[in-house]
Structure formats: C-alpha cells, structure tokens
Amino acid sequence: MSFVTRGFSGRARERDPRLPPGQTLVQDWPVLSAGPTPRIDTAEWEFVIRDETGADHRWSWDELLALGVEDITADIHCVTHWSKLEMPWRGVSVDKLFENVESQYDYVMAHSYGGYTTNVPLEDLLDGRAWIAIEADGEPLDPEHGGPARLLVPHLYFWKSAKWVRGLVMMPDDDPGFWEQNGYHLRGDPWKEERYW
C-alpha cells in the first residue's frame, strides 16, 4: 500500500515560476478601462517629453517609427490578478526617446489621451525595460488595448503601461498618478506584490 497518492506526485500541479505571487495565468487578453476609449488617428498622434526647463521634445507618428521598432517578448501582470506570458510586442525603446533629452529629474508622469496618468521612476523606463508599443500579438494595437500606442513597462503591474500614451513629463518627486492617488501602490512591482498603499 502506497502512502503517496498520484494527486500529490504530478509535476503538472507545480506553479509556473514565471507567475508572480497572487497571479493566475490567462490565455485571452482582458480589456480594462477607467473611461471611454479615445480614437486617435496616427496622422494626428503626437508624443511629447517635457523636461524641467519646460522645453518640449516632440515626435510625430512617423518620427517615432523612424527611431527604430523592436520585437519584444514580455510577460504582463495585471494588478487584478491575471498574467499573460510570452506575449509578442513591437515598439520603440524609451531609451531612444531619451537619447537627446537632458534631465536631472528622477521621476516621470506618463500622460494619456483621455486624461489618464501614471507615475514611474525614470530608471524603470530606461536600459531596455520600457517601450512605446504599437503592436501586440502581430497586430496593430486596438484602441481597446491602448492603440495606436501605449507605454509598455512589463516588469511593473500593467496599470503602469499607460494606454493611449501621449507624453512624459519629468518630475523632481514621485507624485502619484491616477490609480496611485486612489489606493494603488506608488511603484507596483508584481514580484513584491506591491498592489496597494
């Protein structure tokens, strides 16, 4: 007689090590939105970085693409407990945007068409860790998923990957964005389960 049942011996029950604590794997891609979906034509789309002097660094859609579009494979983790693994994306590295931007400030407020904001430390956007994403799953980003362009910061909870992103404003302090003012964590590292204040 065995004291070990099959139910406790199968490896299939082991948790996927790519899933942060408290997360569940999904195959679909849930749409979360705190407001109406903006419809932005790429002919009118513009991206702006504002530094501490008040100077604006601007890119049109074509100017953004001319910086170089990269293939990215990323796991994404939503604070509402779902994760999606090895998702194919295409986008422009935020490093490229900052090549000619000088700033002494350490923090950034991302602003979106529609008024959404989220705060991110600048170091979380640099060194190949963040992109302005324009495609996902081999298709241009749907407006429901933040198209034409969204911020992609996959190592932080996905509310930081602002949909319909339109610009970044440099900040001396880590002022809270929309969700961060209303209960969510200032940084949002899924591996530390930084969900709330």
């Binding site: 849930p30 749409v31 939105s33 705190a34 407001g35 939503c78 209960g183």
Partner: peptide, 11 residues
C-alpha cells in the same frame, strides 16, 4: 460608471 478597471470609476 466604469467597472472593468482596477477600481470603480464614476464619470
């Protein structure tokens, strides 16, 4: 009111 979000948002 938008509820498919990390919180409830009333606009």
């Amino acid at each position: 009111v938008y509820t498919n979000a990390p919180g409830i948002v009333a606009r």
